[in-house]
């Protein structure tokens, strides 16, 4: 017997579907393949428009050239430092506040939630922020990068939802045993929340690793740049904006140097991506099932 799922039309559809989705996969991956091929190719071959899917005039020289630039390594180290410090601060603040917001009995809870949620829909805007950070004397310091984005309200709400779902009995038992709120949070709640903590660390770390605009805006010395601003100055030819100290010599940067820098910037993300992708998806789901 022929089931309805096996009609001729549906079989044709499945073939078309497979072709379309293969196309989607190819289109998504193609730019990466191209950039890796460029990073391993000879500059003249690239200029001649010969490099597409695989390297032409295979060479590692560009990698050793980029790696020999001390500014690149300084900036790369800056990115690591900014990411670690910013993620740490963000995790402490977000965890504390999410825990407070998850306590339904708390007086003033609605106000505390509202104060955070309102900032999702109305922000001060670029100029007042810039004026504020400047007058706080945070320009050219790590604080301009790690403090102003310490709490993402989306992450905060995801975490609050998670805490609300934890069984209250354990906390009550601990409270009866005389443990105070800090102890309960540290020794009861956090050990139960390892999965969500890992997800949040990833969310924050990726966003800080990728961020470039605050540094572009507030940093004027090239030894303070993160690697994203280093890359930005390469691709923009360092001719515009506030990046005075940027590599002014590189007016026309060789395209293979750009490619190498791009590859080196995304490698950490690509390296962890296959293992952590499901955590991201889970985090988004938690956000979608808002409590």
């Amino acid at each position: 017997m022929v089931t309805v799922d096996n009609t001729r039309g549906y079989r044709v559809f499945r073939v078309i579907n497979a072709v379309v989705l293969t196309g989607v996969v190819i289109v998504t991956l193609y730019p990466f393949v191209n950039i890796v091929a460029r990073s391993l190719s000879d500059e003249f071959a690239i200029r001649a428009g010969k490099v597409n899917l695989y390297p032409v005039g295979f060479t590692f020289k560009t990698y050793t050239f980029v790696a020999s630039d001390p500014t690149f390594w300084t900036n790369y180290r800056n990115t690591v430092v900014y990411t670690v410090v910013a993620t740490f601060i963000a995790m402490v603040l977000t965890t504390c506040y999410a825990y407070v917001l998850s306590k339904r009995h708390l007086r003033g809870r609605t106000f505390l939630i509202g104060a955070a949620v309102f900032t999702m829909f109305f922000t001060g805007g670029l100029i007042p922020n810039y004026v504020l950070i400047s007058s706080l004397g945070m320009k050219d310091s790590i604080w301009a990068i790690v403090l102003p984005n310490a709490i993402s309200v989306f992450n905060l709400l995801v975490m609050k939802t998670f805490f609300e779902g934890l069984p209250g009995e354990l906390e009550e038992a601990a409270a009866i045993d005389g443990m105070n709120t800090y102890g309960i949070l540290l020794r009861i709640v956090l050990p139960l929340s390892k999965a969500i903590l890992a997800t949040m660390v990833l969310f924050y770390a990726v966003s800080f690793w990728n961020s470039w605009f605050s540094a572009f805006l507030y940093m004027s010395q090239s030894d303070l740049f993160p690697v994203t601003v280093y890359l930005r100055n390469l691709i923009a030819g360092a001719t515009t904006g506030t990046s005075v100290g940027a590599d002014a010599t590189d007016m026309t940067v060789a395209t293979n140097i750009k490619a190498v820098t791009m590859v080196l910037t995304v490698i950490p993300i690509l390296a962890i991506y296959p293992f952590v992708q499901r955590y991201f998806v889970k985090g988004v789901m938690l956000g979608a099932v808002k409590g």
């Binding site: 989607v24 996969v25 998504t28 991956l29 730019p31 990466f32 950039i35 990726v206 690793w209 990728n210 961020s211 470039w212 994203t228 601003v229 890359l231 930005r232 691709i235 750009k258 791009m262 910037t265 995304v266 993300i269 991506y273 296959p274 992708q277 991201f280 998806v281």
Partner: peptide, 17 residues
């Protein structure tokens, strides 16, 4: 997995690509 990937790139890298 493949289709989520571009979401995780820095805007600078996307612009570069």
């Amino acid at each position: 997995s493949v289709s989520y990937l571009p979401h995780f790139l820095s805007m600078v890298v996307v612009a570069g690509l």
